[in-house]
Computed example of a mutant assay.
Amino acid sequence: MRKRSWGFVVSGLLVALLLAGVVSGFASAHPDGLESALREGCTVDAEGAVTGGDCPAGQEREHEIGGPLADYGISGIADDTLSTGLSGVVGVLLTFALAGGGFWLVRRRAGHAGGDGDAAAQPTSVPRAS
């Protein structure tokens, strides 16, 4: 990868980490459009929990698997803002690592399929007619 491309990738990673780690703390706690649509017909209490009614959100249950990054946070961290930010940073790093590894494998495989992978990227010189 050229030096210019690395700068672009690193800049994009830094922006994604900043958005996931800092800006995610300012996200609204109110339901988004999909969640609002699923709550139509429900009765909710002051904390936003569904208490009755006939709506799809009434069938909501805790996730069966759970995990350390469930509910947009890291389990064991009491501060919601810190938990959400760290969860976002971990998610960005995992996504970057998986995508980078996938691209590396595809590029490596493409290089082996055609013989010398770098030869295809090199311009060939064409002799000029005199």
Rank of each mutant, 00 (worst) to 15 (best):
A16P: 00
L13Y: 03
G25M: 03
T84K: 04
L82F: 01
H112N: 12
S87D: 08
D45H: 10
T81N: 03
G66E: 03
G111W: 02
G85F: 00
R128H: 06
L19T: 09
G101I: 06
H30W: 13
R2A: 09
V50S: 03
V50K: 01
I65W: 11
R128N: 07
L13Q: 05
E35I: 10
Q122R: 14
P127M: 00
H112Q: 12
A121I: 11
L19V: 14
F8C: 14
L19F: 09
I77P: 01
P68E: 08
G73E: 04
P123F: 07
D71V: 12
G58W: 02
R107K: 06
E62D: 09
C42I: 07
V106L: 15
F8W: 13
G101E: 00
V106T: 10
P56Q: 04
D116W: 02
G66C: 04
V23C: 00
G73S: 12
P127W: 01
L86I: 08
G117C: 01
G66K: 11
G101S: 09
G102A: 14
P127N: 00
R108Q: 03
G73L: 01
F96W: 14
G53Y: 02
R39H: 11
A119W: 03
A16H: 08
R107M: 07
R61H: 09
G101Y: 00
A27W: 08
A110F: 05
A20Q: 02
F26I: 07
L34Q: 13
G76V: 06
P31E: 04
L34H: 10
I74M: 10
A120Y: 06
H63P: 05
L34V: 15
P123G: 05
R128K: 13
R107S: 11
G52P: 00
G21Y: 03
D32I: 01
V89L: 08
C55R: 06
G33W: 08
L86W: 10
S36M: 12
V10A: 13
G41E: 11
G111L: 04
L86F: 13
S83H: 04
A70R: 11
A119T: 10
L38K: 05
E47Q: 14
H63K: 10
L94Q: 09
D118I: 12
V10G: 06
G115K: 04
I65V: 14
L34A: 12
A119Q: 07
A110H: 04
V92E: 06
G115S: 02
D32H: 02
F96I: 10
G53A: 03
L69V: 10
V10P: 02
V23M: 01
V44G: 03
P68L: 15
R109Q: 13
A99W: 04
L38R: 10
D116Y: 07
H63R: 12
A20P: 00
K3V: 15
G101P: 00
A110W: 03
V23Y: 06
A113H: 00
H63C: 07
E60W: 10
F26K: 11
G7V: 13
G12W: 05
I77F: 05
G41A: 11
V9K: 03
S36I: 01
S24E: 07
L86A: 09
Y72F: 13
E40S: 12
